[in-house]
Design a protein around this nucleic acid. Structure first.
Lengths: 113, 113
DNA sequence: CCTCTATTTAACCAACCAGTTAATTAACCT
DNA sequence: AGGTTAATTAACTGGTTGGTTAAATAGAGG
């Protein structure tokens, strides 16, 4: 597998279980047991998913007694967003008609929004 | 492997070679040979990468004689951007300080940009 | 038709992934 | 110290990935 940061982030997110974990963590810190609860899956399996997410930098853990709550780290999200930005014209509805887009920038930033 | 569209897109992009191919295609259509040229890798290897990208919907091919030029498809980019949107507060520099963000929306959309 | 170019398919390999169960570590609480 | 709860590590498995080389297919053009 590729070990550059962007590849790690993309591949960490290429799994629905891990995206669900990320979605849960967007609401705030959670312990491993809390994160595992919604899934029909053994604890070690969840632990492995967490390790993948951690290796990608998307989450980090803090030590609080026997609990090791996870939380999201913003950095990889910024890198993903940065990558996406390069392809904005492919996903931004406002730009999906390239002709319209070109006309837009011709107007020298006129009536933006 | 997960076969939902989002997982396919993420995992297709989790490889630097494939991201480079996507970057090249953002400049316009290209044949397999053209796409393969920059890489120190056999033709079949590139062909496989293209099949992964195709299965994810990120690219499509058209038949032009013995050439089968690829081009990007916007749909998966929109899905990725839509997913990212949920996490905007993690990656948008303007929002990375949540307190500032809350203050901002308190102002009822006052001095945006 | 033959050949050249473009590309894919087949068969194989080593490494990795996502899950399992069983055993282990870690910290808290009497 | 002993027990309970939280979580990780170990060992194993079947399926997938990313690459290889060799053979096959498809169309263009003499």
């Amino acid at each position: 597998m590729s070990t550059d940061r962007l590849s790690l982030a993309f591949s960490a997110l290429a799994d629905p279980t891990r995206r669900a974990i990320v979605a849960r963590l967007a609401l705030g810190e959670a312990t491993v047991s809390e994160l595992a609860a919604p899934f029909d899956m053994s604890m070690p399996a969840v632990s492995k998913h967490l390790r993948v997410l951690e290796r990608s930098g998307l989450i980090e853990q803090s030590q609080e007694a026997q609990f090791r709550p996870r939380r999201l780290r913003p950095e990889p999200f910024r890198e993903l967003a940065g990558w996406m930005e390069e392809y904005r014209r492919f996903w931004d509805a406002k730009l999906d008609d390239l002709d319209a887009y070109l006309k837009e920038i011709q107007k020298e930033d006129g009536d933006e929004r």
